[in-house]
Every structure is written in structure tokens, then in C-alpha cells.
């Protein structure tokens, strides 16, 4: 998905983990995943560089779909779809 497609996705859950360091964003994503249904999209906002690779890898390993990452000013947003 390109950046515009990602930005226009219908998001069912937003996790703002900015200001927390690893493993904060990963745990926040893990917890929030329980609050959405299969096929729904979640976005995770983070400013932690380690999270940039960590969350997509974790999502794929658990069978979810990593949709992409959008760069913002001072942070980035990771999009994933629950399996």
C-alpha cells in the first residue's frame, strides 16, 4: 500500500504509544489487538526507532497483516490488519 492508501484506510483502533520506549509500543499494540475484530485495522503511533521494525515483524509472525508505515513529523504510524 502506498502512503495515500494507508492514510485513507478505515481505522478501527488507534494506539498512541508516542513517548514510550521499547517494549511499550509493542505491549500497547498487543493489548489493543484484543479490542478489535478479525479483519479490522489498527494503527500504532510511535516515536521509538526500535518499534519501527519490531511491531511489523511481530504482527507478521503472529499471522496478522502488516499494511505499511507512514512517516510523520517526529513519529511514524504503523498500520496492521488483525487476522
Amino acid at each position: 500500500m502506498n502512503q495515500d492508501e494507508l492514510k485513507n484506510l478505515e481505522v478501527h483502533k488507534k494506539v498512541d504509544a508516542r513517548g514510550t520506549a521499547c517494549p511499550g509500543p509493542l505491549l500497547a499494540a498487543k493489548k489493543a489487538l484484543g479490542e478489535i475484530n478479525s479483519g479490522e485495522v489498527m494503527e500504532i503511533l510511535s516515536s521509538d526507532e526500535g518499534t519501527r521494525r519490531d511491531v511489523p515483524k511481530w504482527a507478521q509472525k503472529k499471522g496478522h497483516e502488516y499494511l505499511g508505515t507512514v512517516e510523520e513529523s517526529g513519529y511514524f504510524t504503523i498500520f496492521m490488519k488483525k487476522k
Binding site: 521499547c22 517494549p23 509493542l26 505491549l27 499494540a29 498487543k30 511481530w58 509472525k61 503472529k62
Partner: peptide, 11 residues
């Protein structure tokens, strides 16, 4: 604790 958190995220 951090390793444990990763393991928890992985179920």
C-alpha cells in the same frame, strides 16, 4: 522484564 514483555507479546 523487557525480555519477558517480548515473550508475552508473542503469547
Amino acid at each position: 522484564g523487557i525480555i519477558l514483555s517480548g515473550a508475552a507479546a508473542d503469547d
